[in-house]
Write a protein that binds this DNA or RNA. Structure first.
Length: 566
RNA sequence: GCCUCGGUAGCUCAGCCUGGAUAGAGCACUGGCCUUCUAAGUCAGGGGUCGCAGGUUCAAAUCCUGUCCGGGGCGCCA
């Protein structure tokens, strides 16, 4: 379309005595803000100098030199300084709807990429709370994984769980010393409470840290059987509780890395870097001095030679590329760690690691409470398990109002789907760089810009099809297209661009916004255009079917599943 | 001090990459619409110095520079 318009304009402008190259014209062609202004437009302001006329005059002059409206178009008009092109909307509508109906769940996907990509996300620490803040990274990661797959890549979902290190030592220390009489249990809030207690006790008495350091060292060396067994048991409780959460969130992982398994390799890595003189010893610790890159100092080993996250992460990159033969490595990690990531990438560069350019960092900001930071250290947070219960209870209440005789099983499954959709959508709808202030009353609002609204729209569209109970005919006549129909079809046709934008920028939020806007347009259509028993029933049934397909594809990429009734 | 991310309606945000036609939503507020495909919906209304100041441009919320405010980070946590 753009090419046709370009060459048309080029000729007309030439007839006015100005010659321009194709690129000079094409870059100005844009999509007008509303359908009554056409489907493509060309602003003439930039020709003022060359034409030495008012821009609206220029538009008229160029328009006059276009003698024939080309095939595929129905009209060319001017409006002020703009020349507006109207495509043949009937043909276009048929074409778009037919493409959606034939490609189905593949509509919008493409396959030319074919990379093997590892996406590392979620990364919760064992022995600590999984709070609503953790859902953000998990949700972004799952969504990116789906977007990457949809664009033709093979994706390996990786989770890197912090099952060792100082926080574990603190937990073990505290349990052993103060809570030994309590039985270990797979209860998120209990596990979290021990950690909170540890922090509290340590902050009251600085000297206690020495005991924790000792435990940390013993755990790292696996030198004490009793400690080891306590570690294994408590670790498993945490990991099992995470798995339950992932099942609910509709996320899975293909590979699990554990920090505890990276200790040895981290140590080797640090030694190699020392030998290569990239790292050095400072105050007894092994560090890399990155000050000249404005990246401070990166500590690899503590002065007691225990291994830090930095060295482990470095070792892990190598393993990812070598063992899994990936050619792209994506990290979805909170932006609090952006310095760490910059240090990691810079060090890889200094090591001449060949794939450093294929390592990508997708940062996201934190989820805060209205009262401030969420923290698993102080217990100032909302645990996932508590919150999901509250939101599903609310969903159930709302569902029962509408479907008093719904079966228990259906109620459970539907309320969970609606709740998860709401939580995920609220995490994905805004720019990942923006801090989310988590307000429970907002999360429990299922009106307006929410996950529930999207699912509701999908279900309503479905009930039209069910009531009509007709087989779609392949051929339909669009009749005279109404404004809401045109808007809806145009929005459907934009899906591909939105997918490719989300992929390119590694940002699901554009798809979340698109899904919502699509629903808004459909709801407007729904109210102004009756489907069943209308003159254009066949066409509108096809349109509704197409809408359902695109909406489903779109929210699938967000990691959200639809419901048929709500 | 340095690095980094934000600052758009009372509140929460979209738009910024790729500059263009009256700056869009949701919540809250006011008033309509359920004998017609699910009212978790829809229509109408009020509400905006796009933090501030310069610059580039025919044209700036959008690009550049400076500045203010807020979040995060900056050597043995992850």
């Amino acid at each position: 379309m753009k090419q046709i318009i370009t060459s048309l304009l080029k000729e007309a402008i030439k007839k006015n005595g100005v010659s321009l190259r194709n690129e000079e014209i094409e870059k100005f062609i844009e999509i007008p803000p509303s359908p009554e202004l056409g489907d493509y437009s060309f602003p003439c302001f930039f020709l003022i100098e060359k034409f030495k006329q008012e821009p609206s005059r220029i538009a008229l002059d160029i328009r006059r030199k276009i003698t024939k409206v080309p095939e595929g178009f129905q009209d060319i008009q001017t409006s002020g300084a703009y020349i507006n092109f109207f495509v043949n909307r009937k043909d276009l509508s048929k074409q778009i709807i037919q493409e959606i109906l034939s490609k189905k769940e593949k509509y919008g996907s493409f396959s030319q990429e074919k990379n093997k990509v590892m996406i590392e996300f979620s990364q919760p620490n064992t022995h600590k709370a999984f709070h609503v803040g953790h859902i953000r990274g998990t949700t972004i990661g799952e969504s990116l994984a789906r977007i990457f797959e949809f664009c033709g890549n093979e994706v390996i979902r990786a989770n890197y769980q912090g099952d060792s290190g100082m926080h574990v030592a603190k937990w073990i220390w505290c349990y052993k010393k103060y809570h030994k009489k309590q039985k270990l249990k797979e209860d998120e809030s209990w596990i979290a409470s021990i950690y909170v207690d540890a922090i509290k006790r340590l902050s009251k008495n600085e000297k206690l840290q020495e005991q924790v350091d000792l435990i940390n060292k013993m755990l790292a060396e696996r030198s004490d059987k009793e400690l080891d067994s306590l570690w294994k048991k408590s670790r498993k409780l945490s990991l099992d509780s995470f798995e339950k959460i992932y099942r609910e969130l509709n996320t899975h992982f293909d590979v699990y890395f554990f920090e505890s398994e990276m200790e040895k390799r981290g140590l080797d890595m640090a030694e190699k870097l020392l030998k290569d003189e990239i790292a050095k010893i400072s105050e007894g610790a092994v560090i890399i001095d990155l000050k000249k890159y404005n990246l401070g100092v990166w500590v690899l080993l503590r002065k007691d030679q225990t291994v830090l996250y930095s060295a482990k992460d470095l070792a892990l990159v190598k393993e990812k590329f070598e063992k899994f033969k990936i050619n792209r490595n994506v990290y979805v990690i909170g932006s609090a760690q952006s310095m760490h990531m910059a240090q990691l990438f810079k060090t890889l560069e200094l090591m001449n690691f060949p794939k450093v350019k294929e390592c990508k960092y997708v940062p996201f900001s934190e989820v805060r409470l209205p009262t401030g930071k969420m923290s698993s250290r102080t217990g100032e947070n909302i645990l996932y398990s508590d919150f999901i219960k509250e939101i599903t209870d609310y969903s159930k209440k709302e569902i029962k109002k509408r479907f008093p005789s719904i079966s228990k099983k259906e109620l459970e499954s539907r309320s969970l789907k609606i709740s998860i959709a709401s939580i995920k959508y609220s995490m994905l709808k805004q720019n990942p760089n923006k801090v989310i202030i988590f307000k429970k009353e907002d999360a429990l609002n299922f009106e307006g810009d929410s996950g529930a609204y999207i699912l509701y729209t999908y279900a309503r569209a479905g009930s039209i099809l069910e009531k009509a109970n007709k087989k779609l005919k392949e051929k339909f006549d669009t009749g005279k297209l109404e404004e809401k129909e045109i808007e809806l079809i145009k929005k459907l046709s934009q899906f591909k661009d939105v997918v490719s934008n989300a992929y390119k920028t590694m940002n699901p939020n554009v798809l979340a916004n698109y899904s919502y806007q699509l629903c808004q347009i459909f709801n407007e259509f729904y109210h102004s255009c009756p489907v069943i028993d209308s003159e254009k029933e066949q066409f509108r049934l096809s349109l509704v079917t197409a809408l359902r397909q695109v909406l489903k594809n779109s929210v699938y990429l967000l990691g959200i599943s639809t419901v048929e009734e709500m």
